[in-house]
Nucleic acid binder design. Structure first.
Lengths: 196, 196
DNA sequence: AGAGCAAGTAATCATTCGATAACCACTCCG
DNA sequence: CGGAGTGGTTATCGAATGATTACTTGCTCT
């Protein structure tokens, strides 16, 4: 297999493992197992675990920003036929699609929680502000609108990190997920089922 | 020093270290150093690192719920003179006070991100739902109102985890913090300054 | 054929970290 | 005095983990 393709497989596996266990808790061996290669190969391909994590973060961030741009484009198109539609709804739809690859959002979230780390912290803050500026300058939202998007996003990320949907039987759990994600609770539940 | 007092000191130190580095990244040695005791003492007092983390989580959760109850009481009192006041504002005021002990909110947040862990996950989910039920049943909010409180809370927790206020010089950073925490941006900035 | 390179693996090393064991100091009490 | 309980410490061990080295395999191009 060509190295570029293998690289993408490893990045995908790494995003999942980093998202589940956090930066320190994730082992290069677990990433290797998930990608079905040997542990030394993972380390040598990226140079170090830290470099692998940064590669995962830039990849995740690129996907997230691309999602926002896609959602904004879909919103513009949709508004032609339905002038009542809202951008937040379009973003919400596309956001849930990102959840299918849980690693993208959770690995970012794990980085955000390590702001005190002298190496990860600056990278995480820069990534966060790229999101803010994308929404404000490219999509053209006010700072209040951006914050309104981000806070619901952080709640959803937390619920995903919690694996709260695993307790869907609890009526309080289903109520809270349904309230937080009105349009997409069904999909979230299905994803939780199929992945335990 | 009596053991109960030492225990509280260690819990405080542990909350800070767990909040900064995450569960796996935090070492019992770092906790011990922060509490100014030896590493084996920390381990023996709580039995294991995992037991220490759970003790930190219950303590943090108790403080958080107590804060919500205090805020609700303050709201009732305040409404007598100002019928326009809002519960969210009262909670916001008290929430920022909790930030003075950053470990409380961040150690909880770190636990929420480990929902996939077979040991921490169930504890984290149970803790989260205690928060939800407290706000809904004791404070008497609708599920929509609870979610409205929680999502802004998760955004603030993320900003604190990021140590975003460290980049206050960046005008985009100050704009976004001020937008997310209109009443308390000044305090946040001061806290960031005094603690680096 | 065989040189050369790309894509990997097996074996191993040095550190780090949680945990354990053994020991020390002080105070209180008979 | 002496011993027992309380509040600690120093020394050390074993497992886990990131990294390194050296080897193997298979393809391609003269």
């Amino acid at each position: 297999m060509p190295a570029t393709e293998r690289r993408e497989l490893i990045l995908e596996a790494a995003a999942k493992v980093f998202g589940e266990r956090g930066y320190v808790g994730a082992t290069t061996d677990a990433v290797a197992r998930e990608a079905d290669v040997s542990q030394p190969y993972v380390v040598r391909m990226f140079g170090s675990k830290a470099a692998l994590f940064e590669a995962v973060l830039t990849r995740s961030l690129d996907r997230l920003l691309a999602m926002f741009r896609d959602a904004a484009a879909a919103f513009e198109e949709e508004r032609a036929t339905d002038p009542e539609t809202e951008l937040a709804l379009c973003i919400g739809r596309n956001y849930v699609d990102l959840l299918r690859d849980r690693g993208i959002l959770l690995s970012l979230m794990q980085a955000f929680m390590l702001g005190a780390d002298p190496e990860i912290g600056p990278v995480a803050r820069a990534g966060w502000m790229r999101v803010y500026r994308c929404l404000r300058d490219e999509i053209g939202l006010t700072s209040e609108e951006v914050v309104g998007i981000l806070d619901r996003g952080m709640l959803i990320n937390t619920l995903v990190g919690l694996r709260l949907a695993a307790d869907w039987d609890d009526p309080d759990v289903s109520e809270m997920i349904t309230t937080a994600m009105p349009q997409k609770a069904g999909i979230v539940r299905a994803l939780a089922d199929e992945r335990g």
